[in-house]
Structure formats: structure tokens, C-alpha cells
Design a protein around this nucleic acid. Structure first.
Length: 577
RNA sequence: GGCCUUGUGGUGCAAUCGGUAGCACGCCGCCCUUUCAAGGCGGAGCCUGCGGGUUCGAGUCCCGUCAAGGUCACCA
């Protein structure tokens, strides 16, 4: 491997997303690597929004990407003032946080915002270099655009993939200034080179899809060095291309997977039930009121009419909003692809960061669980692999569960509060949530069995349900065994407990009930577990709840007794049936 | 199709200069246990895509082949 040409320059890395959608997991990993590498070498990490494609870029995307980066804790070390949330631009005003997700309410915003290429283009930064190339005959005009000549063999070294060389015959002249959009904007290939050079970026860390594009960039660096006579500024950086992140199936993990999931579900339904039934089902899903509601939550109109749905099924479009919204009503779970998806699903930043750091990189020993400090200390380009890695959600979940268990009870309870506030309005209004003591008890009981934040909410939905909403089904084996088995011993014990609970105080009911059960168990010589299961079932409808004292305490005396009576009735009805 | 790249148990990764493959997730069993988790203990599962070659010896070098990914835009 040749000596690092940049060894004498301070390390500068950057993350340069184009704001054409949300920050996806691959982008997050690239950003993480670039950030970690800069930290490791006491260098700087900068952010640059590549918004030279006017048609596809949007302020919303910019905002979303910055928010997600902030959520992950990946901040820029230099740059203009943080952009305001209103404009998504670098207008220099203090950040207006009102538009941000409540889940992130007290996150750090960082001291610096990103550079914007659209702004730099407006400042004329790229134009003068294009002119130089034109003057030197290294580029020429072509139908309003400007093309750069590629008439020599190009070779460069990538820190991951090694020496790459391409013959001139396989290279084509490429556009560096667009003829469209007013004829002023540089293309991506030109803008990255100019910006990276001017911002003194020493290590360009990006996705492998740019590997072959790098021939263009290398040629541009060389040409610009020659034309300006400034070899120092236009020194080629170290290129670092990271392998792709794939789906378990082998396809590249992309946001289009969401559209695919929805479409598959729909076409499957159509094949099974016929088009007519589908038409009816979909119109039942998408009533005008629902559409109106959707649009109000989306903040902008979403085209959900018949032709739009037909076009979607015929693969004519993959509109992001359409997919998200329709999937919600159609009842399809979309795969998590973007950072925001993982946040919504209840993953912790630390777990996500830890997991994606391992996608294509490893510390060299068998250590898998580590934090950002460890990453910054250990990160090295040499340990980035060349082969694509596939994204294993099961393993990610395990990482998250481990991270959740490592949280202190207080921090966990706080995380849960934020999650509930942001994503679970039904829980946010419940007495368990609003009563601090109860919330603490609940979180303390569920923490160690939580894989992702919504787990305890979903597993314990019975806690916030109405008493008469609890349904009893004695068919499942664990339920039958506990209630019906052994000559309906469970029913008998339940009656015993119901009687025993009657005199207990409503205050501190959970602990009192627990003590009572212990007494009854001891007196009858029957195993405590035999008592616990029937109450569990009575109170939740199923065999799984947090420890019985906590569960009953959370529910309170009235609800507990009511549910026990209802369960008894249901059991009798079941027996006589 | 041209060019570039990759290919280790189900999955994610290890294996410094070539010496008979290790860790984690998952899975199975046992223990613990008032359920479920968690935890403890143990187990099954790759001879390294395939075929040649070099070598005393190759996952690790060479050739071929197959498979996969990337790229060939006035998108980034």
C-alpha cells in the first residue's frame, strides 16, 4: 500500500447526503465511519448537503436528515450556523426547534450546520474552475452543458478495494456543468471534487456505488491541479469505499423495499380474492375523511385516488408518502430502512450505532458490543471489509435488548416516556403513564424483557384496556392447562382468591394481594405458581404478564376484582358449553 | 453487454508473513423460575461457491468457471 499522500495534513472527513429523501441506514453508516475516523485522528468532520439537483431536493429531506444525524449524535465540527428548522437552510438564525420530533426534544443540536452546494453554486464557487478547464481545453461545451475530456487511462488507490485502473477506452467524457436548470449548476461529480478540495477533505468515505465514479474524480483533481498550478489544494484525497448493505434476500437494502412490500401484499390479495374484492376493500380503507386526516398529519396533500392506486400496483410510481400512508390503512408492516424507521420502532441510538458499525467493519477481536468512544479509538480503514454485508434485524434486536438492559431504571423510564409521548397516544393518556409511581413500577418490571421500546406496551395492552374488553379464550394450551386442567383447579383457586381479596385495602393492593396469595398457597399446600396463573389470565386474558404483584398493583383493586369475576363467568359458560 | 468488485456454518463477522477454521446472533436441550423474558450450562451446524494449478502444506497465491453486487445519466 502506498504511503498516505495526506499524512501531513490534518484529517478532514465529510458526510455529503443529497436531500432527496430520508437518511437511510447505509447513509448513517457512512456518516458514522466518516465521523469516527475524524475523531480517531483528532480531525474534523463536516456536513455538506449536495442539493444541486433542484428537482429532487427538498428542504423537508434536509431537515429530516439533519434531525436523524442529530439523533444519532453525529455532529459537524465546522460550518455555518445550524440551519433553521423552518427553512432547512443556512439562513443563520438560531434554530427553531418547534418543528422537531418530541422524541428528540432535548437533544443537542451541535454548533455547526452543513454547507449547501446550492448556496455555493450561487456564490459562483464552481463556475470559475469550469472556466479554467474550458480555457485549457480540458473541457468543452456541448449543447449548453460542459463536458470534461477523459482521454487518458486513470488509476487510483482505494483504501478498501486497493488499486483500481480503467483504460481510456472505457471512459467517456462526462458533464460537469448542466445545461438545464439555468445552465449554472455543476453536476455532482464536479461539485464533490471542488468542494472536497476546497474544504481540505483528506479522506473521502462513501458508499461503494461511487467506486467506479472515482475515475472521474481522480481525473478532475489532476486536471484542476494542472490548470491552477496549485497541486497542494488539488491533491487527491484518500478514497474509502464501503461495501453495500443488503437485505437478507440478497437485494440491496433501499427505500424501494417499502413500496415492494406494499405492492406484494396488494397483488397477493388481488390474486387470492380477485380485483373486485380488492377494489372494495381498498375503498373501505380509504374513506374521504381518512384521507383528509392523513393529509393533515402528513402536512401536505397525498394523492390517494383510484388512478394513483392503480398506477402504484402497475409499478408506475413508488411515491414515499403514498406508500407510508396506504400501508398504514392496508395493514402492511413496512420494513425499517431509514433511521427514522428504527427510531419509530423503538431502537436506541446506541444499539443502532453499535450494530451498523459492525456492518462492513470489525475491531479485529471478538468484541461486538461497544460504544462510540470505543469505536473512535479503534476505528481503522484497514478493517473495513470488501464484501457486502446483509442486514440482520434479529441480531439488531438482540443488540437493542442488550442496550436496553444496560440502561439504569431511571434512564429507561425516561426513554419510555419519550417514546410513548411521540408514538403511543393511547398510553400517554392512561393512568399508569400519568402516575409517576406507577410508571416507575411498570418500567422497572418490564425493562429486562424489552427488546424494542414498544414491546412492553404491546405485551401489556391489557393494562390500559377497559375491563370488559378483556376476552377469554380457553383454547390455547397454557390457558387451558392453568384454568381447565386438573379438574378446573384454576377456577377453584380463582374463586378462593376473589374471596380473599375482598377485604384487602385498595391502597397498596398489589403487594397486599401478593401476600394474600402467598398465604393461601401456604395454607393449601399448593404451589404459588398454580395461583398466579389463573389471576394472570383473569386480569389479562393471557398467560403472560409482569410479576403478579406489580401487575395487580398497576391495575388496582377494582379492575382486578371485576376482571376476576368476568373470567369466572366466562369459565362457567365455557364449562357448560 | 463492457468495465470494476466480492463469494467462510441459516445470518453477521474472525483467522498477522500460506500450516488442517474461531466469535456472536439464531436454533436445540438442560438448569433457574409465580408466567414470559433475562441469566447459567451444554449441543447441533461450515473442511471455506465450484473445478483445476503452485506448494511438504491454501480459506489465505495463480488460472478458469458459476453466483452476487456496483457502474456505464444534464441523479447523487
Amino acid at each position: 500500500m502506498p504511503a498516505d499522500p495526506n499524512h501531513n495534513r490534518p484529517v478532514v472527513t465529510r458526510f455529503a447526503p443529497s436531500p432527496t429523501g430520508a437518511l437511510h441506514i447505509g447513509g448513517a453508516r457512512t456518516a458514522l465511519f466518516a465521523w469516527a475516523f475524524a475523531k480517531k485522528h483528532n480531525g474534523r468532520f463536516i456536513l455538506r448537503v449536495e442539493d444541486t439537483d433542484l428537482k429532487r431536493s427538498s428542504p423537508e429531506s434536509t431537515k429530516g436528515i439533519l434531525r436523524d444525524l442529530g439523533w444519532l449524535g453525529l455532529f459537524s465540527d465546522e460550518g455555518p450556523k445550524y440551519p433553521c428548522a423552518k427553512h432547512g437552510c443556512g439562513c443563520g438564525k438560531a434554530v427553531d426547534d418547534t418543528g422537531y420530533d418530541p422524541y428528540d426534544r432535548d437533544r443537542q443540536l451541535g454548533d455547526h450546520g452543513p454547507y449547501f452546494q446550492s448556496q455555493r453554486a450561487a456564490d459562483g464557487i464552481y463556475g470559475k474552475y469550469i472556466q479554467r478547464l474550458l480555457d485549457a481545453g480540458k473541457a468543452y461545451e456541448d449543447d449548453g452543458a460542459v463536458r470534461f475530456r477523459m482521454d487518458e487511462d486513470i488509476a487510483f488507490t482505494d483504501a478498501v478495494y486497493g488499486d483500481i485502473s480503467v483504460k481510456a477506452d472505457d471512459l467517456e467524457d462526462f458533464i460537469i456543468r448542466k445545461g438545464e436548470d439555468g445552465g449554472k449548476l455543476p453536476t455532482f461529480h464536479f461539485a464533490v471534487v471542488v468542494d472536497d478540495a476546497l474544504m481540505e477533505v483528506t479522506h473521502v468515505i462513501r458508499g461503494q456505488e461511487h467506486l467506479t465514479n472515482t475515475t472521474k474524480h481522480a481525473a478532475l483533481y489532476d486536471a484542476l491541479a494542472e490548470v491552477t498550478g496549485d497541486a497542494e489544494t488539488w491533491q487527491r484525497p484518500v478514497w474509502v469505499h464501503t461495501p453495500s448493505i443488503m437485505n437478507p434476500g440478497g437485494s440491496k437494502m433501499s427505500k424501494r423495499d417499502k413500496a415492494k412490500a406494499l405492492r406484494n401484499s396488494m397483488t397477493e390479495y388481488i390474486e387470492k380474492n380477485g380485483r373486485d374484492v380488492f377494489e372494495e376493500a381498498i375503498s373501505r380503507c380509504l374513506t374521504p375523511q381518512q384521507v383528509a386526516h392523513l393529509e393533515s398529519t402528513a402536512g401536505h396533500p397525498v394523492n390517494l385516488d383510484r388512478s394513483s392506486i392503480d398506477a402504484f400496483i402497475d409499478k408506475k410510481h413508488d411515491d414515499t408518502d403514498f406508500v407510508r400512508v396506504v400501508a398504514g390503512f392496508w395493514g402492511v408492516e413496512l420494513p425499517e430502512i431509514e433511521v427514522a424507521d428504527f427510531r419509530n420502532s423503538g431502537y436506541l441510538q446506541s444499539a443502532l450505532l453499535n450494530y451498523i458499525a459492525l456492518l462492513g467493519w470489525n475491531p479485529g477481536d471478538d468484541i461486538e458490543h461497544f460504544d462510540l468512544d470505543f469505536l473512535c479509538e479503534k476505528f481503522s480503514l484497514e478493517r473495513i471489509g470488501k464484501s457486502n454485508s446483509t442486514f440482520d434485524r434479529v441480531k439488531l434486536k438482540d443488540f437493542n435488548a442488550t442496550a436496553v438492559r444496560a440502561l439504569s431504571h431511571d434512564v429507561f423510564a425516561d426513554r419510555m416516556v419519550r417514546y410513548v409521548e411521540a408514538y403511543r397516544p393511547a398510553w400517554a393518556g392512561s393512568p399508569i403513564f400519568t402516575d409517576a409511581a406507577k410508571w416507575r413500577a411498570f418500567c422497572g418490571a418490564v425493562q429486562e424483557r424489552t427488546h424494542v421500546l414498544p414491546d412492553p406496551l404491546e405485551m401489556n395492552a391489557f393494562l390500559i384496556a377497559d375491563d370488559d374488553a378483556i376476552a377469554y379464550d380457553f383454547a390455547p394450551k397454557p390457558v387451558r392447562k392453568a384454568m381447565i386442567g386438573n379438574e378446573a383447579q384454576g377456577v377453584t383457586l380463582l374463586e378462593e382468591m376473589l374471596a380473599g381479596f375482598a377485604d384487602l385495602p385498595a391502597d397498596g393492593f398489589g403487594a397486599a394481594a401478593h401476600t394474600k396469595i402467598n398465604e393461601l398457597a401456604e395454607a393449601s399446600g399448593i404451589n404459588m405458581g398454580k395461583f398466579a396463573q389463573p389471576v394472570r389470565i383473569a386480569v389479562s386474558g393471557g398467560p403472560v404478564t409482569p410479576p403478579i404483584d406489580v401487575t395487580l398493583g398497576l391495575l388496582g383493586k377494582v379492575a382486578t376484582l371485576t376482571r376476576m369475576r368476568r373470567c369466572l363467568e366466562a369459565a362457567k359458560a365455557h364449562a357448560s358449553a
